[in-house]
Design a protein around this nucleic acid. Sequence first.
DNA 1: CCTAACTTGTGAACTAATTCACAAGCACGA
DNA 2: TCGTGCTTGTGAATTAGTTCACAAGTTAGG
Lengths: 208, 208
Amino acid sequence: MRRIAESTIRRLSLYLSFLEEIEARGVATTSSDDLAHLGGTTSAQVRKDLSFFGSFGKRGLGYSVPELSSRLRQILGLGKQWRVCIIGAGKIGAALARYEGFADRGFIVSGVYDADPDKIGTRWGDITVRPESELERDIASKRYQIAVLAVPPEAAQKLVDRAVKAGIKAILNFAPVQLNVPHDVSLRTVNMAMELEALTFALTNKGD
Amino acid sequence: MRRIAESTIRRLSLYLSFLEEIEARGVATTSSDDLAHLGGTTSAQVRKDLSFFGSFGKRGLGYSVPELSSRLRQILGLGKQWRVCIIGAGKIGAALARYEGFADRGFIVSGVYDADPDKIGTRWGDITVRPESELERDIASKRYQIAVLAVPPEAAQKLVDRAVKAGIKAILNFAPVQLNVPHDVSLRTVNMAMELEALTFALTNKGD
DNA sequence: CCTAACTTGTGAACTAATTCACAAGCACGA
DNA sequence: TCGTGCTTGTGAATTAGTTCACAAGTTAGG
């Protein structure tokens, strides 16, 4: 498959959320123009994004909502369930562990890890916080596919190295540091400071 | 000022974090090549990013760490303190309200709002959760400049409309919906599902 | 003062992403 | 069966972003 732009993937994810919304309302078909309006883009962009993966619509008619959403789920790899562990049982880890949005998309959070003895053993809903020392063993035995990293910046790289060594191939990082991972591991970083600074930049340079 | 790419701003923010790190270690000068290595980019990219804003280095020598970090702070609008309110006192709102990372960068979280009577009046550190109905009044009187939205998706657009009407010009949205704001309001959305789906896409299409 | 070793700043070249614009296909009604 | 109205899919054109490559400064040492 030809390399697909990051931005295309993000938009596909967005289109999918619209499709699920209108599917729930019982709408049967939609058009690139509809999706474009909902997503703040153009109909040509929608069609181009989809065209990288095939041809899912009918000329003159548009797209079947159930069919397109099913194809998008397939493209994004959402057909199956994904086993996720959260590393770091601080505030962010706690918020993520209890985030309901995960389950609907097939993400099963089945383990939370921390080094702090006071946190180990505490129960969060139906998950018990486990000792960080068990991380490698659990990655192997519970076959986590995605690790969500919510630890202080100074601990992040070491934990990533351990997780990667134990076989993790995808990491969502909330620690405000630049992480290094091997080529075959996917990494995404969510950095609050960066987001806020994009806002302050815009506020500061308004009207230029 | 000529339009600056989003990606450039994100990188400036990244460079700044490296500069602060090496400044703390007492390093006096650095080069575009150093910054490029830390940030996983190229020296030409670093120099080009900076060149949009001026010329901050000395040929043959590199950049003065304190000077460049100060210039970057200025460019990003971090010279001053920013008043932030958090709308939504759920799990994510709680994690954000207590995030220490904000203060170092000049972000002062001085209000948290929620509609749930059970939450109103509860204290989080030195902040008391206030009723959502006071939002407009407080935006005016406390002069919040940035609103962080951490409410359920179905409530998000209405609250944004209210905040914008009351004068907010920058919003960081954690609700998984596409929000509409007027042209002169800056909006950034952090969508967990999108991040995870970028990962599952990569996992699913590995090796293509 | 001159040379060698560096590193910036920046047009030019290149690559990637978006938008345009239109032929082709489909549904429906006369 | 033909025409009308609509919408897709996609090369071509355009615009945006990145990388190249090198002249121009700067420092240090002899």
